[in-house]
């Protein structure tokens, strides 16, 4: 059983998600910021009339933030609540890999990050980290509500 992975680069890391989860890939889009929302959600993009949240994968994966002015790509993934855009640095190829080659994340990896991965492939020249899209979106969801809660906590203090 082999799976097709759409791959992309985020802060030098080579990541992939199942192509079946990808709705489309877009070039840099105009972002509308959402004041007060957690920085994990970079803003909203207008996807042919549909309003889609754009998620900063660097922040989700606790990687250094992107330099300003750097063009980025949107990997629009399907989720339970409609499409969500994952913001990445560069788009790679679609690769076909055997499920048997998927190994679990290394144990010394920060579990907060390891938990977001389905596993990784040891490719010839580099490692491909397979992202669990649903988990990643779940992390964003809790980050958004945590940011909201802390605001009210700060108010009541």
């Amino acid at each position: 059983m082999s799976t097709l992975y759409a791959t992309f680069l985020v802060a030098g890391h080579y990541l992939g998600i199942d192509v079946l989860e990808v709705q489309e890939v877009l070039l840099e889009q105009r972002l509308t910021p959402i004041p007060l929302a957690s920085a994990v959600v970079e803003g909203l993009i207008n996807l042919r009339g549909q309003i889609v949240p754009a998620i900063d994968l660097r922040r989700v994966l606790k990687l250094p933030p992107a330099g300003s002015g750097q063009d980025r790509f949107n990997v629009v993934a399907r989720s339970r609540e409609g499409p969500v855009s994952l913001r990445v640095d560069e788009i790679g190829d679609v690769v076909e890999l055997d499920a048997a080659g998927l190994s679990p994340p290394p144990e010394n990896l920060d579990p907060a990050i390891g938990g977001l991965l389905r596993g990784l492939y040891k490719l010839q020249d580099r490692l491909l980290l397979v992202l669990d899209t649903a988990r990643a979106i779940e992390v964003v969801r809790s980050a958004v509500s945590a940011a909201n809660r802390s605001h009210y906590d700060a108010k009541t203090e």
């Binding site: 007060l36 929302a37 959600v41 909203l44 309003i51 969500v84 958004v144 909201n148």
Partner: peptide, 16 residues
């Protein structure tokens, strides 16, 4: 247009 559901918890936006 409806807002992505988690963002509704901000209680500041009725939509977009």
């Amino acid at each position: 247009k409806p807002l992505w559901q988690p963002l509704k918890s901000l209680n500041c936006y009725a939509g977009a």
